[in-house]
Design a protein around this nucleic acid. Structure first.
Lengths: 305, 305
DNA sequence: GCAAAAGTGTTAAAGGTACACCCATGT
DNA sequence: ACATGGGTGTACCTTTAACACTTTTGC
């Protein structure tokens, strides 16, 4: 086939069978223990981290074809024609972390026309929770530049306008992603509109030059929200911990996810006596520390109803 | 272009640019007052209804090309190349009900390869809530066969198997969709697997000859679950009611959605005094009834936090 | 001995559950 | 008069929030 013919065929195919592409984006969470320099002991403070991948290319060179070159982005990829959507997510996760059998859940499908400036792409995001003790340094030792980033959010601004039938509330959050080498900041705008009995919430992000590629900041924010909500009434948190853990570890994890500080005594009581989510073991924590702590395990018979 | 050339081009396009199609399925809910024959007065019992559309064709004639001919299905359609996913949902909703500005929310994206036996289709489902008082008989008076069905679910069977690291629990539900003329029954299978600290829930449905088209039974079930969960902690229920309503009306709605019976006094107190979700008006219910009831309205200043 | 984390007990306020009882109105 | 739904008050129990206090261990 001649060059010209091929060109024609491509054009023809594009126009007559023009369909969006489908991709999957993975928000892979893990929880690590924060190291305190001023304290020689095993000080416990959990940090939430997510895995990002650096896209090939130079971010400073403006490229019409790919405006996201050289930027940090969520791992992900195209859905193959003969592949279940969930399988795409599992495959991407395994490719990045070499780990299978972790908690995974679908988040949201973004189908904005100009989400990707190059082509129409419909992207479904998934959230995965991996236990950092199993992970070690699988990610980041690759040819591909993949790194774990500590993630935090900060409310920058809130603007509430009262309308005839309700109100409009705009919140601006800053998403901060940091590790030893890089710090990424991006903004998310959340607009809640209440009009009569019908309320609506819209997510948006800058899609600017400085932050993450695509709408990945908004995806990460929504994953954090989902995690926060679910941690209160499901067993989701345990997917971020090793099999055996101390109650302080569990408490610190709850605190970093919800952003609230909890009372120690109440938390212990609730987890063990009231909800019966955890069960004592005969094992104890080890290492440089003050008093040794009893290790607990998740009660697999726990029912959420 | 010759016939042969066209054939070739189609094949070429299919193989080289083969992509899934994207569709949107709408679960449109409304709540109506049940009519009791044995009671002459305005007896109040809310029923949840959803809108279904009868697909063209004869269900008895086996058609390899379209095995879902003549079956009842959720309204929906293809996502246009230059159309936001949300817009597709809004468009489908308007086409079916002629109503805009209702509550709408994305549910889930099903990307199973053999979901549609004909082609690869990735389908995103949305849930919409419409106030039946605004609706009247817009749907069903069309050339297209669209009807409201009262929806109920029933747990048929539960099977729990204990495994080494947890358990597997399989539940079979029956989804019943009824109106004056038709009754549709379909089954949904929900498998919850707990293995160590990681739990997983899978939805499935028969996709058999008798029930709804595609996996629509499972989609409806998941919409019911979402509605049930959200009604407890959001203002979502008010989107199903007219602007003014009695507390009994609201209570009956909560009951039909959650499947629980509530105590009248407690419900009133909670809604008005504790949560301040509703505000008294000076208006009173009218019509054939016993004692007149005070009408309330949603408090638009209510905050879910 | 002191600092820091592990772990227990006690109390008050808030929220949920249950029920008894009065009110208004059409037949 | 009475049946039926509308509406209020009160008692009891569980959960949550807050804080005081004891125990263990490394330095």
């Amino acid at each position: 086939m001649s060059e010209q013919q091929q060109q024609f065929l491509k054009k023809y195919a594009d126009s007559n069978y023009k369909k969006p592409s489908n991709t999957v984006d993975m928000v892979i969470f893990t929880a690590v223990n924060a190291e305190h320099e001023h304290n020689s002991r095993n000080h416990l403070d959990k940090l939430l981290q997510i895995l990002l991948i650096k896209r090939k290319g130079d971010p400073c060179v403006v490229d019409e074809q790919d405006p996201y070159k050289g930027k940090w982005a969520l791992p992900g990829g195209f859905v193959n024609y003969e592949e279940d959507l969930d399988r795409t997510a599992i495959r991407e996760l395994e490719e990045e972390t070499n780990i299978a059998g972790v908690y995974m859940e679908q988040l949201y499908t973004c189908g904005k026309v100009y989400r990707d400036l190059r082509n129409r792409v419909i992207s479904t995001s998934y959230m995965a929770l991996v236990d950092s003790s199993k992970l070690d340094m699988k990610a980041g030792d690759d040819a591909e530049d993949a790194r774990w980033f500590t993630v935090t959010t900060h409310l920058l601004e809130e603007l509430k306008t009262t309308t005839k039938l309700g109100y409009i509330r705009k919140r601006t959050y800053e998403l901060r992603l940091t590790n030893n080498e890089v710090e990424i900041k991006d903004r998310i705008f959340i607009t809640k509109t209440v009009e009569g009995r019908v309320s609506k919430t819209e997510w948006d992000c800058a899609g600017n030059q400085v932050g993450l590629a695509f709408d990945h900041a908004a995806i990460i924010y929504s994953a954090l929200e989902r995690l926060k909500n679910k941690v209160e009434y499901t067993d989701i948190a345990f997917a971020l911990l090793p099999e055996r853990f101390t109650l302080t570890e569990l408490k610190k994890l709850y605190e970093v996810i919800t952003g609230k500080t909890l009372y120690d005594a109440n938390f212990r009581d609730k987890m063990e006596k009231q909800k019966r989510m955890v069960i004592q073991t005969d094992e104890w924590s080890s290492g440089k520390q003050y008093r040794r702590a009893r290790l607990f395990r998740f009660n697999t018979d726990w029912l959420e109803d």
